[in-house]
Design a protein around this nucleic acid. Structure first.
Lengths: 383, 383
DNA sequence: TCAGGCGCTTAAAACGATTCAATACAGCAT
DNA sequence: ATGCTGTATTGAATCGTTTTAAGCGCCTGA
């Protein structure tokens, strides 16, 4: 089948490099390991051992190694990943499942994931569930068929029931979730410490002298909502600050990750209509905060002069809005890295038949103070 | 090797479904096609033919089909993609190369790509070059080894020299670029019609009565910059509007996709210092526009009351900023779809040994009018 | 002289599918 | 009987690697 190659080709010395690049893959088709073997005069086995630097490579004569490597380079040999994977059972790929890529929160996480995977020479196979359960399932199916060595799920609500991931567990494929977690001990997770974050934001406002603070809580279905609120309450209790229930609103459940903007806008208008004065507003997340700012502006209130506003997440736009947004930063990229480290650990453990413990990591949020908050003004503090 | 399975298992009737899910993959390991063959009492060949609905399936007895399909389901059989690919030479995967995922412009494109690929049952293998040439190369290498059937490159500047993609051409792997194009006819591309877009924006401002318009041109290295400017000039000529060179600034080249914000801010401050009055500012893209708005606001000028501002791209944040941004929308998601259609076409053509022509598509931009522009006010128009 | 060891290399068997050519059989015309 | 056609199924080769166990010289110490 393969066209006959010179059995003992003269290896060109350094001066020949130029034409080497010309002669590359002269057949026009794929050059296989067999070709390299034939061309170099050794067997496929030897070629494999040399090119992979397998344990046995210790015994291979340096001259042989050199010969093979040069031949491979000259022919432009590239290993066929499929064949390799079929034999070695290792695909060196990881499934990355985004519940909704439209969520601006995903992008930095994705970068973190990609970067760490790249360092470790794993390829990410991307899937976007569009918030649809059947897409989620079909994509998981696809990832299983491709024998990904691990799975990372980026989500922020309780979308998946456990049984969908059961197949992964059954096959001992490590799974890690970001921004969301599964009960039980089958799946590692990485989340920001929402409670600490909630506290951070309200503490900041409190320190600035705000006592009439409005809150827009997150939708019930988002796993982040409850702990953030809890952080707020705990802080309030600890300093004897009383939350006025008339100043509390809650975002409705929604599938659209960008609905927070609209929701923040609407709820803020509603809060304003209640005619209960507030000097600060703590929004569930950045988009909500931007919606709130828009409503306040529309009502003729200036941010931060008349009302301070805080967000949560620190998505890209927060720094660019006018005014720029004081917010609680989630270390999103880092969270991506952590998740990858986690599943890499899992893969290695499985490889070495070690046991390995599921972990639930909490990353520390960080308060980023920008222009949307300032000390309460005397005029608004009274009354 | 494989544990003996019942050679002729009683296929459960419908009532037995519950336990079927319990018995699934009882061995705990992967169930192969051989297993299905043994369990159903047919040969692997038949199983393959049935499960893939291969041409030969016409001849298979309906009873046999049913039998095999049920057995497969019951055992939880999932084809091993690697094995399949090795034999059939088709990986059903496509490389998606982002020059920098951090660019907000990427996200909608990525969604478009993922979505179209999903519909066509292709899996995207993601790579992010981080704007680094060596990463770009290494990632291409990886994609080649994985035998992707096509490649999509999302970039907006002239990053890659052609020879990096030569290997793909050599192997007849279709390549399409988005937001950027290669000279010659080796690579398809999808771009927005920048010239039309530039015209759209300036025409809008002109119609609103603006005659003192400042421009922030894009960085030289971005392929978009020149045609947008050309569109502006052409429009200006056509209506006899003269561009004041004192009101023209240009963003410096930069690798950071988010540098437009900073750049827009700085250049606007600079423009303001020139003490040449302008009633509108047309920014190269949305981020630049947001930077400009920030600078204007800082200088005590209100947008749009004192100065209208337009952007370009319509990234997610444009609708949420205060004021929301009038901009020229690129149909980003559609562009992703188009690129996929294109390479799919290429794949099919190659499959059927047809010839197939490279295409360079231009999508139509769309003017999105929001709050950041308004008719020139009388007070500012004179003087 | 021989067993054993060392240093280097390879034959051959997987891996799990696809696919071609071959077979087996029934029915039917010659 | 023979050949033919069409239906239903399968054996065996193949894809390009990895990996195990073995092979082959040659040397060395007994």
């Amino acid at each position: 089948m393969t066209p006959p190659l010179q059995s003992e080709p003269k290896l060109p010395d350094d001066a020949g490099h130029r034409e080497a690049s010309v002669k590359r893959s002269d057949t026009g088709v794929t050059v296989t390991m067999r070709d390299v073997a034939k061309a170099s005069g050794f067997s496929p086995a030897t070629v494999s051992i040399v090119l992979n630097n397998a344990p046995l490579a210790r015994y291979i004569a340096p001259a042989t190694k050199k010969r093979i490597e040069e031949t491979a380079r000259k022919l432009g040999y590239r290993p066929n990943a499929m064949a390799r994977f079929l034999r070695s059972k290792r695909t060196h790929s990881v499934g990355v499942m985004l519940i909704d890529i439209t969520d601006p929160y995903c992008t930095p996480i994705l970068r973190g994931i990609e970067n760490s995977l790249y360092q470790a020479s794993y390829a990410p196979i991307l899937a976007d569930a569009h918030n649809q359960k059947n897409r989620f399932e079909r994509s998981l199916e696809m990832l299983l068929e491709r024998h990904v060595e691990a799975l990372i799920v980026v989500a922020n609500w309780t979308f998946v029931d456990i049984h969908l991931l059961a197949d992964f567990n059954k096959r001992n494929i490590p799974v890690a979730t970001i921004g969301w977690e599964l009960p039980g001990d089958t799946t590692s997770s990485v989340m920001v410490d929402n409670e600490a974050g909630g506290r951070l934001a309200v503490e900041h406002l409190h320190k600035l002298g705000h006592r009439k603070i409005a809150f827009i809580r997150g939708p019930k279905m988002l796993i982040d909502s409850a702990p953030r609120w809890k952080g707020i309450q705990k802080f309030a209790n600890s300093v004897g600050f009383e939350i006025d229930q008339n100043l509390v609103a809650q975002l409705p459940d929604s599938l659209d990750p960008n609905s927070g903007f609209e929701g923040g806008f609407r709820l803020t208008e509603e809060l304003l209509q209640r005619r209960k004065k507030f000097t600060a507003l703590m929004a569930f997340d950045d988009l909500t905060a931007l919606g709130a700012i828009r409503a306040l502006t529309k009502a003729g209130l200036k941010v931060p002069e008349h009302c301070s506003v805080t967000g949560f997440d620190d998505v890209a736009l927060s720094a660019m809005s006018v005014p720029s947004l004081t917010t609680v930063r989630q270390p999103l990229e880092t969270m991506g890295n952590l998740a990858v480290n986690n599943i890499l650990e899992g893969i290695n453990a499985a490889q070495e038949k070690r046991d390995w413990a599921i972990s639930h990591q909490r990353t520390s949020p960080e308060l980023v103070i920008r222009e949307s908050t300032r000390a309460v003004s005397l005029s608004s503090a009274d009354d």
